[in-house]
Amino acid sequence: MLNILRLEFLLVIRSGSHIVLAFSFFLFFTLLFALSAFGDNFILSKIGLTAVWLSLLMSILLTVNKVIHEDFESGVLDYLLIADIPLEVTLFCKPIVHWVSVVLPLIIITPIVLITFQINPNHIAKVVFVLLLGSPSLSFVGTMISCLTLSNRSSFLLTTITIPFYFPTLLLGVFCCSSTTTELFAFEYLLLYANTLFTVVLTPYISAYAIKLNYS
């Protein structure tokens, strides 16, 4: 497992173009939201959380096809299928690498974005915390759906059919960010953790099954 993680990280570092792409996309997309509010501070603070979540979601959607589809096209996936390591482990590592390389940098700059959206600075730590705990599920679900669409690798199709699977996380994420409780084990937070754990634990198995279905 550590070998796979190291290999994937090396690959990402050496061909890191889509990290910069996701980073810029995130900034531009939040800028679009900010510009469409015409500098009205009230509207900005209202849409800030939604804007951050949606931008994060869109940048994940646009990069998640790199996780599996490129391996499939270059033939690496065939080797991973017959390798000694179980496919589930590989498919557990790949979203983790995707999350660390693409999503984590975005979460790190969200405080700056949120300040420009006139969000109360006391509130920002909680939002970042919710993003950190909620977003892994987006990477894992995205990887699962991209395993499902190996037979037709158009990124437009992948984006379209992944969106419905992001509803639970998006709903819970935005709801938790905007809820006023400070307690970390309030019911909505527990739902968010449950959602993340559910997807992180189960999607590697489903992705492996989907890949086998596509090869049969």
Binding site: L148, T149, S151, I206, Y209, A210, L213, N214, S216
Partner: peptide, 8 residues
């Protein structure tokens, strides 16, 4: 393949 994928 389509039946496999859509079923899942």
């Amino acid at each position: 393949k389509a039946a496999n994928v859509t079923s899942l």
